[in-house]
Amino acid sequence: MSQHKEVKLVTTHQLQAMKQRGEKISMLTAYDCSMARILDGAGTDVLLVGDSAANVMAGHETTLPITLDQMIYHAQSVVRGTRRAFVAVDLPFGSYQGNSSEALRSAVRVMKESGAHGLKLEGGAEIKDSITRILAAGIPVMGHLGLTPQSIYKFGTYTVRAKEAAEAQKLLEDAQLLQELGCFAVVLEKIPAVLARQVAEQLTIPVIGIGAGPHMDGQVLVVHDVLGITQEFKPRFLRRYAELGDLMHQAVTQYVSDVKSRAFPTEAEGY
């Protein structure tokens, strides 16, 4: 892994500057120190400690079960492995909706206990008070609109959002609102590319897409999907850059075989 001579930290200010000069922002999820080191060393701009940890790390069906304590644990691990990237953390379901005082308490805990650089919250006008309160405490907030997985039971499906005119209009209004409130960026998940482009062009803050087409200011994917560690998830918007699941399977199969056949360890591999 190449060592950067000068490590320039990615900040909200730099992400804004990247949008202005047309440089695309790369963002991936991370949940542990070892993976964070690799992603950070490869030059990823933003590491998202996603509540998708509920799925890929803990094996849950949805993102809903993960707790604030568990998110803090993952965030601490990622921060320890990061030297350059901006680390954003998802506030988990139930830790900010409906009560802005609780939202602020959750936000302060994540920032104090993990050392992360900012938070991501799902929703628009419905969570306006929570966002305002968190921002007032000096904590950077990234918005998240479109398919918001914490609301999966309301949607009832993981299909594309905002295809209907009314939902598209609300998304445009919510995106504008998030910018006016002071969010430093917005994630758009699984919405039509035409609508996503409209949002990216209207907003002055960076707009990062996942399944939202090529006209975004940046892209985010779940790292286990990108690397082929999770193999059953194959949406159209995912590009697999490696098949590590297969590679790991082969390696472990070989290890088991070598142990059984007494090929490992040899005399030379002992003391």
Rank of each mutant, 00 (worst) to 15 (best):
H74R: 08
Q20L: 09
T266W: 09
V108W: 08
L177D: 01
T132H: 02
L47T: 14
I134E: 08
T253M: 01
Y255Q: 03
L244A: 00
V87F: 14
V226G: 00
A85Y: 08
D32Q: 15
Q250N: 04
Y153Q: 15
L121V: 08
G81M: 08
K112Y: 04
G94I: 04
L64P: 05
V187F: 13
I229K: 00
M142G: 06
A168I: 08
A85C: 07
K234C: 03
F86L: 09
A36Q: 07
V252F: 00
V256H: 10
Y31I: 03
G50F: 01
I205V: 13
A88W: 09
H224C: 02
R83K: 11
A263W: 07
C183R: 10
K163F: 01
V220G: 03
H4W: 12
Q198M: 06
L121H: 13
K19E: 10
D174G: 12
V46Q: 06
V194N: 14
S100E: 12
V78L: 08
T204W: 03
T67R: 12
G182P: 13
R80P: 03
D45M: 05
A175D: 13
R37T: 11
V226F: 00
G50P: 03
Y73G: 10
L177T: 14
Q20Y: 07
E167G: 09
H144P: 04
H249D: 06
D246G: 07
M1H: 11
A107T: 09
S257C: 08
Q150K: 02
Q76C: 11
I210P: 04
I152E: 11
E269G: 02
T11V: 13
G146M: 03
L172D: 15
K5V: 10
G50S: 11
V160R: 07
G43Y: 10
E126Q: 00
H60P: 11
A251L: 09
Q254P: 08
